[in-house]
Write a protein that binds this DNA or RNA. Structure first.
Length: 356
DNA sequence: CAAATTTGACCCGT
DNA sequence: ACGGGTCAAATTTG
């Protein structure tokens, strides 16, 4: 992009983030002094608008020249499939299932992918960095050639319920056992603690997670934004992982890679201020959640009679969840699927933006 | 008993 | 053929 517009662009971002920050502050303030649903809702909307704007700006600022080696949000060629249903595998599965049962097929779709290094400062970081506020379900572990420690594979617990295809791999560092490299793939569309679809019947086990105070729900939205940014160039600094015993401290660094897996260190964040602004509001910017694709996903997912075999969490849930996005106002967080449908590549009719 | 983890087998790209 | 990633039956956990 040329320099003139770059300047404008930055200024715009500055302004927007200012606005957003102030709104956030106001919100926090209001929340603590005179909690009021109405205020909160209003502020949420304001903030959402800012988020929207910021996202749009970020988006347009980044698509033009694909500058940062951003983990691509969608596969370049497959513009329709904003992903989230990255693997038609499961559909295929139901088709091939018949005799083989094995289903993985096709090329792996492009997911936003980034790596986080988490250091566990403690006597024995044996458990590893477990809690990043999403519900992960381990689905595999593998000894990796030349690596001392096995690599663990996790996927989102709500994969089937919410069609959330985020996965992560955790690999302990060979020479520094306190260091874990966590590779996130795909973006969370479940946003399990707040958004659109309420969590499946049994609330998170892994994360009995403190009920999120009303005031903090915004965090989720903010987080969303942050994470979106993270998709462009992941960032974070300190994080405070809730269920960590006090003597644990995490420190993480992020990098993301582009499709060629070129590392893109995150040091060079052009808009530090923005990040600073947000990070002051978050406790755990490390989470990988993001809704920005969920809507697209929702409307794209097609459970087309492909019964997912076992319990997992239930097709009934799927159905009702699905229904809830179109019919019942659950938590007032439903969002406009139809609009999403118009342009799945433009993920900004994000949930939490309260379209009703 | 349901949900999560473990673990060997399978699949796919190289 | 090999290695990494995923599946799914068996097992464990809550």
């Amino acid at each position: 992009m040329k320099s003139g517009s770059t300047w404008e662009y930055k200024t715009l971002i500055d302004e927007l983030s200012q606005g957003m920050e102030k709104a956030n502050q106001l919100r926090v303030h209001l929340c603590s002094t005179s909690p009021s649903e109405a205020h909160d809702l209003l502020l949420q909307r304001i903030i959402s608008s800012y988020e929207n704007a910021l996202l749009i700006v970020n988006w347009s600022g980044s698509v033009g020249h694909v500058p940062v080696g951003a983990p691509t949000l969608a596969a370049p060629e497959s513009s329709i499939s904003v992903d989230g249903s990255p693997r038609s595998d499961d559909m295929n599965k139901s088709l091939r299932d018949n005799h083989d049962g094995r289903a993985t097929s096709k090329k792996r779709k492009m997911h936003p992918t980034w790596t986080e290094q988490v250091r566990v400062n403690s006597g024995n970081g044996l458990e590893g960095p477990t809690d990043d506020r999403f519900s992960w379900r381990k689905y595999g572990q593998k000894d990796i050639l030349g690596a001392k420690y096995p690599r663990s594979y996790y996927r989102c617990t709500y994969r089937h319920v919410r069609n959330c295809w985020a996965t992560k791999q955790v690999q302990r560092s060979d020479d520094d056992p306190t260091l874990f490299e966590i590779t996130y793939k795909g973006t969370h569309v479940c946003n399990h603690s707040t958004n659109a679809v309420p969590p499946p019947p049994s609330p998170e086990k892994q994360e009995p997670k403190h009920n999120i105070p009303h005031c903090h729900q915004q965090e989720q939205q903010n987080q969303t934004l942050l994470n979106f940014k993270a998709n462009l160039r992941v960032n974070t600094n300190a994080l405070d992982i809730k269920e960590t015993p006090p003597h644990f401290s995490f420190q993480s660094t992020f990098a993301c890679h582009d499709e060629e897996n070129n590392y893109v260190p995150v040091s060079s964040l052009p808009d530090e201020n923005l990040v600073g602004t947000f990070s002051s509001l978050f406790h755990s910017p490390a989470t990988s959640g993001s809704n920005y694709f969920s809507t697209a996903t929702y409307q794209m997912n097609n459970y087309g009679g492909a019964p997912l075999k076992h319990s997992e969490t239930d097709i009934a849930d799927i159905i009702s969840a699905h229904a809830s996005t179109t019919n019942s106002p659950i938590g007032g967080m439903e969002f406009s699927i139809d609009r999403m449908g118009l342009d799945p590549n433009f993920p900004f009719y994000a949930p939490g933006f309260l379209h009703n």
